[in-house]
Computed example of a mutant assay.
Amino acid sequence: MIKVDLRNSIIEALPELELIQNNEYKEAVIDIWEETYKKSEWARLEDVPKNNKVRAYSNVQHTRSVTLQAIACAEIVENIHNIKVDKDVLITSSLLHDISKVFEYDNNGNKTNYGKMMQHGVYSVSKAAEHRLPLEIQHCIVTHTELSKVMPQTIEALILHYVDYLDSDLLSHVLHLPLALKR
């Protein structure tokens, strides 16, 4: 796949990119997805599973769902509670939160050495820092999972954390898998 095709396939796979107002953030998200995917062994973006237990849904589906749920949650919080949410930070973080999934699992659904040895937010945070995305975005990414021992410190980080677990538990529920809620 040539570079233009890969960029276009990323843009097509993640239409929520268009909701990012800050063009630097938007370009960084596309660049990070492109750089990450080029290093992976997956044939298509849509082939990467959400995780090794939830293989019926792709990481792209999960990422899009989390992003849209985060936006809906932000709009409700703003409209009902009059609490300002930085949607560019939230959308950018949501689109990048699980980018490392392309390295965490192999084509057989097994955890790779990377997946066994690294907390899955680490790669995403390092790519966000490399692309000079703000600390607020890096914070949202690292705190989206309880595997990080850092607690969410911003409205955007709280929203991403909870909608990520909501989406994960919804998918686990329909597949009759244990919920994170019950662990």
Rank of each mutant, 00 (worst) to 15 (best):
V4T: 10
D5R: 11
D5Y: 02
L6A: 12
N8S: 11
I10V: 15
A13F: 01
P15F: 03
P15D: 01
P15L: 02
E16W: 01
L17N: 01
I20V: 09
I20E: 03
Q21A: 13
E24Q: 14
Y25P: 04
K26P: 00
E27Y: 03
A28N: 05
A28C: 03
I32D: 08
W33K: 06
W33C: 09
E34S: 12
E35P: 01
K38D: 04
K38A: 12
S40D: 08
V48K: 11
V48D: 13
P49V: 10
N51L: 09
V54M: 13
R55V: 09
S58I: 08
N59P: 08
V60K: 07
H62R: 13
H62C: 13
T63W: 04
T63I: 13
T63D: 14
R64Q: 15
S65P: 00
Q69C: 03
A70T: 04
A70Q: 02
A74H: 02
V77E: 01
N79Y: 02
I80W: 09
H81M: 12
K84C: 03
V85E: 06
D86W: 05
D86E: 10
K87Y: 07
D88I: 09
L90A: 15
T92D: 08
S94C: 05
S94M: 02
L95C: 04
L95Q: 09
L96F: 03
L96K: 13
H97G: 06
E104P: 00
N113T: 07
M118K: 11
M118D: 04
H120F: 07
V122Q: 05
S126L: 10
K127H: 02
K127I: 01
A128G: 04
E130G: 06
E130C: 08
H131G: 07
P134H: 12
E136N: 14
I137W: 09
I137V: 15
Q138K: 13
H139Q: 11
V142A: 04
T145K: 11
E146Q: 08
E146S: 11
E146K: 09
S148H: 09
Q153K: 12
T154D: 05
I155G: 07
E156N: 15
L158T: 10
L158W: 09
I159N: 07
L160H: 08
L160I: 10
H161A: 11
Y162C: 09
Y162R: 05
V163E: 14
D164Q: 05
D167I: 11
D167Y: 09
S168K: 06
L170M: 12
L170H: 07
L171W: 08
L171G: 00
L171N: 09
H173S: 09
V174Q: 15
L177V: 06
A180E: 10
A180Q: 06
L181E: 12
K182Y: 14
K182S: 15
R183F: 15
